[in-house]
Amino acid sequence: MLSRRSWTLNSRSSPPRARQTRTGMYKILGEDIAAHLKAKDTPGVFIQGLVVYSGAGDEVLYERLLDIEIVSQVASFCEERGVSLIAYSGDEIVCSEKDAETDKIALYSEPMPSAVGPLTDAMAAGLRVHKLILMDSKEAIDRVRPDIERLIGDRATFTQALPDMLEVLPAGASKGHGVNVLLKHLGIDPVRLMALGDAENDVEMLRLAGVGVCVGNASPPARAAARFMAPTNANDGSAVAMEQLLRSKEPPAGEE
């Protein structure tokens, strides 16, 4: 079982998240656990469910990419509005040019973004983009979200894990869908799944899981989707929930 200490991130207890790159997850878990997972060819779901590894080496079971037209429109929008933009490409993160906002992603144990020039030029040269993240203050993100959603419409899915970041995913994509793909591959009924979440981007996964648990500081959408509530992140909510389930084989104590 993972120790609570292994989940500490910038003084906040945080388990590895399916929204991250595989590189970021390994960094959170620490060298020993990461080495064990690599040696065992452990399957996994990453980048908001957009990349699913089967467990057979680096075999990709499922993958979704953004269309270059969407990337072009979002990049132009961000340039006009003065909003920073990063792109997830497999285990790497890139941007057209680096600034203080783009580099904030490294605070969440993700790789430091690399500047590659215009994203559409990089895509034409072979860059594969799984998702985009608009990065600015919470107030700025709140202002631009309605406008970018109107511009792109249903050609992409928008979600948030953090108030100062807005994520752009391929249409219909979610953590829940990626997790379900892996469960079907492994022959596991979702009723046997325990999922932990705290934000809008966790909603589909929490609804899918037989034991969907939100932490005490979760956003309203995550609270509504979860069946159970654990303590807050600051009080090791994720670790408490997992420990209780493993010890008692019952759902974690909290509000249903």
Rank of each mutant, 00 (worst) to 15 (best):
G44D: 04
V52P: 03
Q73N: 07
C95Y: 00
G24C: 00
S89V: 06
T21I: 02
S96E: 10
Q20L: 11
D58N: 09
Q73V: 03
S96G: 10
G44K: 03
I47R: 05
L66W: 01
I70M: 10
R81D: 07
V71I: 08
C95N: 02
E92L: 13
I28W: 01
L85V: 06
F46V: 01
T23N: 13
G24R: 00
Q73L: 11
I86E: 02
L85W: 05
E80V: 15
S89R: 04
R81C: 09
E80M: 14
G49D: 06
Y53H: 08
I93F: 01
E92C: 14
D67I: 05
S72E: 14
V51P: 11
K40M: 14
R64W: 05
L61Y: 01
A75N: 10
Y26A: 14
K38C: 13
G82I: 02
T23I: 07
A39P: 08
T42G: 07
V83K: 00
D32C: 15
D58V: 03
I33C: 11
S89F: 06
E92R: 14
G24Y: 01
Q73E: 09
R22S: 05
L29E: 00
T23W: 14
H36T: 14
Y88Q: 05
G55P: 03
A34K: 00
Q20G: 10
R22Q: 07
V60D: 05
C95A: 06
L50G: 11
A75E: 13
I47A: 10
E59P: 07
L61A: 00
D67K: 09
Y62G: 10
Q73K: 12
A34L: 05
P43C: 08
V45W: 07
S76E: 15
